[in-house]
C-alpha cells in the first residue's frame, strides 16, 4: 500500500510536469512562431489601437452599422462572461425578449415585412457570435444604406462580397462577419461628419 501511494505521488508529479507544463508551453512556443496572429486572438488593429478580434462579435446599435445577434454574454458581447441565455422553449422570459426584439427590429427596419431569419433575434450560444446569416444581413441593408446616404444596390454588392460560403464547400453554414462588414463599410462609404 505504501509503495502504491509513493508511485501515485511520483506519477502525479511526472504527469503534471509533462502534460501540464511541458506540453502547453511547447505548444505555446510553437504556435507563437507558426501562427502568431491566430495564437494571440486574431486581433484587428487600427491606428495602433486594438478594435477587437475578428473572431468575437461586438455590440453595434447605431443605424449606420449592421447589427449582430442579441447577446447573453454579460450586458452584451462581454468577452469575459461568455454564454447563452439558457432560456428554454417554453420560457416566459424568452417569449418577452423575442417579442421586444422583433418589435424593435420592425421599428428600425420598417421596410421589412417578411419573416425574420432564424438567427436574427435569437441569442447565440457563446454570446460572442461574430457572424450573422446572409439573410440577416440583407434585411438590414435598406436601413444601413439610408443611414449612409448610399443606394441599397451599392450596399447589396458590398454585403455580397463579404458573405463567407461553407468551409471547403460543405462544412458549416454561410455567414457574414459583422465586424469585418462594418469595417468595410466604414472604409468604402465613410460617414460624412
Amino acid at each position: 500500500m505504501l509503495q502504491q501511494i509513493k508511485t501515485a505521488v511520483l506519477i502525479t508529479i511526472v504527469l503534471t510536469v509533462l502534460t501540464g507544463i511541458i506540453y502547453p508551453l511547447a505548444i505555446t512556443a510553437l504556435s507563437q512562431v507558426l501562427f502568431p496572429s491566430q495564437a494571440n486572438g486574431s486581433l484587428i488593429v487600427s491606428n495602433g489601437k486594438v478594435i477587437g478580434s475578428e473572431l468575437l462579435g461586438q455590440n453595434f446599435a447605431k443605424p449606420e452599422y449592421f447589427h449582430p445577434r442579441p447577446s447573453a454574454a454579460g450586458t452584451g458581447y462581454e468577452a469575459t462572461s461568455s454564454g447563452g441565455s439558457n432560456l428554454g422553449p417554453t420560457s416566459p422570459d424568452l417569449s418577452k425578449r423575442l417579442g421586444a426584439d422583433a418589435a424593435a427590429f420592425h421599428k428600425d427596419n420598417p421596410q421589412q415585412t417578411g419573416p425574420l431569419p432564424s438567427d436574427l433575434i435569437t441569442a447565440s450560444a457563446s454570446g460572442l457570435d461574430p457572424d450573422i446569416s446572409p439573410a440577416s444581413a440583407r434585411v438590414q441593408i435598406a436601413r444601413v444604406a439610408q443611414a449612409r446616404g448610399i443606394s441599397p444596390q451599392q450596399m447589396e454588392s458590398l454585403v455580397g462580397a463579404d458573405v463567407q460560403g461553407r468551409q471547403l464547400g460543405i462544412l458549416g453554414e454561410p455567414r457574414v462577419n459583422v465586424l469585418k462588414l462594418n469595417l468595410d463599410i466604414d472604409r468604402q462609404y465613410p460617414l460624412k461628419r
Binding site: 447563452g84 422553449p89 424568452l94 438567427d119 450560444a125 457572424d131 446572409p134
Partner: peptide
C-alpha cells in the same frame, strides 16, 4: 441564406 429552426443558443 439562413438556417431556420431553433437558433436560440446556437452559433451562426
Amino acid at each position: 441564406a439562413q438556417s431556420g429552426g431553433n437558433m436560440e443558443g446556437k452559433e451562426t
